[in-house]
């Protein structure tokens, strides 16, 4: 019981027990506690309420809270598991867990499917993919003529849309990514393996006796 004991630390409203979160995710207890240090930083960057709103999420991603980005919006919506318009600590840890190098590949494939299924219809439709391509071209310096975009879409759907109904279902997606493993690179964040060394201050705020667990 020294000066640094923090058993009575006040937590934000969405805080959850690290032991429980570690049991449900690919993270160890120490990693969950280190993620809390990151979460506190992001969630207090605009409004210090212990929750990450869209502006704070964009600020963390782009260092600019006003930057509009279709994909960042989509990732935010998927992280906002309880559909409250904000990400609480439990949402943050459970969602990031999918990106852990040790997370099951199935979960990564499923998350990527949801990411591209913009309208949440259970299918990735050609129009959605076109919308995403156009959004990407708008935000980047890349310039592609409309015919080139259509050719890219034709080729992609010839390969991915096995039953040729103009949309990609979950089974088709699974087969497509198994032939194109580079698509899953964005679903693994090597940083998550080093989270305890990136945020070592978690040790001072730990409420778990054996932080090695």
């Amino acid at each position: 019981m020294g000066c640094f004991n923090s058993k009575f630390t006040k937590h934000s409203p969405g805080y959850e027990d690290p032991v429980k979160l570690a049991a449900e995710t690919a993270f160890s207890v120490s990693e969950v506690e280190a993620l809390y240090e990151l979460f506190k930083k992001i969630s207090s960057s605009v409004i210090d309420d212990g929750l990450i709103n869209k502006e704070e999420f964009q600020l963390a991603l782009f260092k600019n809270s006003k930057k509009e980005n279709l994909f960042a919006d989509r990732v935010f919506d998927l992280f906002d598991v309880k559909r409250k318009g904000v990400i609480d600590f439990g949402d943050f840890v459970r969602s990031l867990s999918v990106f852990h190098p040790n997370a099951p590949q199935e979960d990564k494939i499923d998350f990527a499917f949801k990411l591209y299924d913009l309208q949440c219809t259970g299918y990735i439709e050609r129009e959605e993919v076109k919308q995403m391509l156009i959004a990407l071209l708008c935000e980047s310096e890349m310039k592609l003529a409309d015919e080139v975009i259509e050719t890219i879409l034709d080729k992609t759907f010839q390969e991915a849309d096995v039953d040729q109904d103009g949309r990609i279902d979950r089974d088709e997606w699974q087969k497509f990514v198994s032939h194109n493993p580079s698509l899953m690179k964005i679903m693994t964040l090597p940083y998550l393996k080093d989270i305890t060394t990136t945020f070592p201050s978690f040790v001072f705020n730990s409420e778990v006796d054996d932080i090695a667990t």
Binding site: I42, A72, F99, V129, M142, V148, I152, N180
Partner: peptide
Amino acid sequence: LGPSMMNAFELITLSQGLNLSALFET
């Protein structure tokens, strides 16, 4: 690999909004 040689999803993964590693550089 030029953009027209990639499939649509390879292109989309180039988006900065999907680069979540930036979260850790906060």
